[in-house]
């Protein structure tokens, strides 16, 4: 496969929150990753690890006490240095489609899906005129497989799955090359998770790039091409999804612990709690919970060969792969 230039290229992205009293919260530190067209990167980690802050940073939706560093290039534009006007007028909806966490809350309750789609079409595309808008909205609905006979319903008259499709249809209107899904499956049933994820996958296969932020490992396994594991604000492992979820499995002890905690695996929790983002240790943030920790872990592990750990599970050798 030839390498294509990534849609989103994040280099050294860090986010700090300044709190009263001079406290600094290191929400995201030195994140590096790319997302290419036709690819889904799943960003996984426990709640409070900084993954949602990363999404807010990309959309320019950080609160006023946040400070950022690094770059997040979307084509020729750096999302971190762009002003609100640029982000609002040319990025959100047009170049990044946001698929929200709770579609029912994302849709305007007092208006029908059709009117919301038409409004978004009129906003984001050049389509004008009543008949043209109607057709365009119907096409947008069809792209997300939203049933046309439900277009005149209000959000509360839709099932969770259809509300999700409506929100996806809205996110797709602007033909954005990058889709950003923040916990799109929280609180959904397993069947609905599978359907939502499969639909997102169709859009990835239609050559869009998808960055999916989730704590649902099963959903990530179903959709992702690559997986980035975030712990205490840092990406500690970034690897192909099939080796991560299948054999030989993840290499970072934290990733292994996360997978082993699943009810269909050993269902054992990782001991302890994640460290406070306002009070991170100098060395490896996971060392305190890690059974492989050594003296080396007092130094920050560099990110080498897909993992940031001093003693990762060895990478498979070519013989292992053949076996």
């Amino acid at each position: 496969m030839t390498e294509r230039s990534p849609v989103l290229s994040v280099r050294g992205l860090s986010v700090r929150f300044l709190l009263p009293g001079g406290r600094r919260i290191a929400a995201v530190t030195d994140a590096h990753f790319d997302v290419a067209p036709g690819e889904c990167l799943a960003l996984i980690g426990e709640s409070g690890c900084g993954k949602s802050v990363l999404a807010s940073a990309l959309l320019g939706l950080l609160p006023a006490n946040a400070r950022t560093a690094g770059h997040a290039r979307l084509g020729d534009l750096d999302l971190l240095t762009s002003d609100e006007r640029t982000l609002a007028r040319t990025v959100r909806g047009r170049r990044i489609g946001l698929i929200p966490q709770s579609p029912a809350a994302h849709l305007t309750p007092v208006r029908t899906i059709r009117s919301q789609l038409q409004e978004t079409v009129a906003q984001l595309t050049g389509v004008r005129g009543r008949a043209a808008l109607r057709t365009a909205a119907e096409q947008a609905a069809a792209r997300a497989e939203f049933p046309p006979d439900h277009l005149d319903r209000h959000p509360h008259e839709l099932s969770g799955g259809l509300a999700q499709r409506a929100a996806t249809a809205l996110a797709l209107v602007g033909e954005a090359p990058l889709l950003l899904a923040d916990e799109p499956t929280t609180g959904l049933d397993r069947d609905l998770v599978d359907r939502t994820v499969d639909e997102l996958r169709r859009h990835v296969d239609a050559d869009r790039a998808l960055l999916m932020i989730t704590h649902d490992l099963a959903a990530a396994e179903r959709i992702a091409d690559r997986v980035a594991v975030m712990y205490a604000g840092r990406i500690v492992e970034l690897t192909a999804a099939d080796t991560f979820f299948g054999a030989p499995g993840p290499r970072h002890p934290y990733s292994r612990g996360l997978l082993e905690a699943l009810p269909d695996r050993s269902f054992t929790p990782i001991p302890g709690l994640p460290p406070e983002l306002g009070d991170l240790p100098d060395g490896c943030a996971f060392a305190a919970r890690c059974d492989r920790a050594t003296d080396a872990c007092t130094a920050l592990p560099p990110f080498t060969d897909s993992v940031a750990c001093h003693h990762p599970v060895p990478a498979p050798t070519p013989e292992d792969i053949r076996a």
Binding site: E46, H215, L259, A261, L262, P263
Partner: peptide, 17 residues
């Protein structure tokens, strides 16, 4: 009631334990 629906795998396993 859906005690672990919002939680990651490790916290889920910890609370169930």
């Amino acid at each position: 009631d859906e005690m672990t629906a919002m939680l990651d795998a490790s916290t889920t396993a910890a609370l169930v334990r």
